[in-house]
Structures are given as C-alpha cells and as structure tokens.
Amino acid sequence: MTREPITMHSVTKRYGNHVVLDGVGLVLEPGTVTALTGPNGVGKTTLVRLLLGLETPDWGSVTGVAGLRRAAVFQEDRLCAHLDAVANVRLVLDRSHRASAVDELALVGLEPADLTKPVRELSGGQRRRVAIARALAVGADLVVLDEPFTGLDAGTKPAVMEYVRERLTGRTAVLITHDPTEAEFLGARVVRLRHSPGLGL
C-alpha cells in the first residue's frame, strides 16, 4: 500500500509536434481505484505509461511513484508466447512466491490442462486471463489495468471481474475502460479525459 498519494502535476507529453497530454493533473489516493475514461486518442494509455515509468513527462512531474512496485495488464497481453501460463506468471514473482502461480491461474478459471501449454496455443480469452493473473499475483503497490476485460467471453468475465475486485482491495489502481459498469463494479472513482480545446483536437 502506498503511503503518499501518487500525483501528476501539470503533466504535458508530446510525441514530435503532437501534444498528447496538456497540463494534466491527477491525484491517486492510496488504496483506491481510479477509472480513466474518454474518447480514443485522448491520452489515457500515455497517462498510465507515465505512471508506470515507461515515459517521462516533457513538462510537469509525477510524484509518489519512487520505489513503488508496479504491475500492469497492458492493452495487448504481452506474454512470452513460447512459455506456458505458469512460467509467465512465475517470471514476475519473487522466488518465495513462485509456488502461488498455479493457484492464481486457477482463480481466473484456467484448467490444469491449459497451464502447461505454451500460451501461444491458448485462446485470446485464456491469454487475457493469464495476463490478469500475472499482474495481480505480484502484490504491486500500483496496478494499471488497460482495458483488462476486453476479449473475455461472457461466461468467464464475471468470475474474473470478481477476482480482480478482490485482488485490488487496498491497492492503488488505475483502470482504463469504456464500460462504466466495469468502473462501478470495481468501486472506482471515474476521471474523464477530454481533448484540450487549445490543441484543436
């Protein structure tokens, strides 16, 4: 659990001449879930990349993230295709927690027979569940979930959402979603990003 809020102070981020974020301010209170919504291209993914330390702001700053253990469900699954589901989860766990990988995967509904297959042989929905289990098994201080439930079939989605809600209890998390019910289910504070009028977008 984070001790101080994670704060973005007037963050501006541009790629070449394209301004993606213009003076964005955001406070993430420790132990809360914040849902980012807004139209495509508004900079939601860029914002979470800044939180994950994958980008640095051109102006402004992000504070409260130093030393944080971070985890993410990216928009794409970003799994090692040749490794099986268990190996993918174990890869991100500390040596002492590696035994829990199988349990976490069982909690997202993966059958034992699917655990030892290379993940490239799993369906899109199964890979998504592996990616979710990987992010939530870590016990991170800050969890980023970029459209985590996309690709899940209707049969497994409720159980996976329940698993996510349980695992996020007491953690600081950012959820990117276009579905208000997902935000509501996770008890998230909703922050809507919009294009800056000054940018002519």
Partner: peptide
C-alpha cells in the same frame, strides 16, 4: 513490448 513489460514487473 515484452521488454517494457519486463521493466514494469522488474523481471
């Protein structure tokens, strides 16, 4: 993208 994920998860 995998390298980025490894960085985030501190592999």
């Amino acid at each position: 993208s995998l390298l980025e994920a490894a960085r985030v998860f501190r592999v």
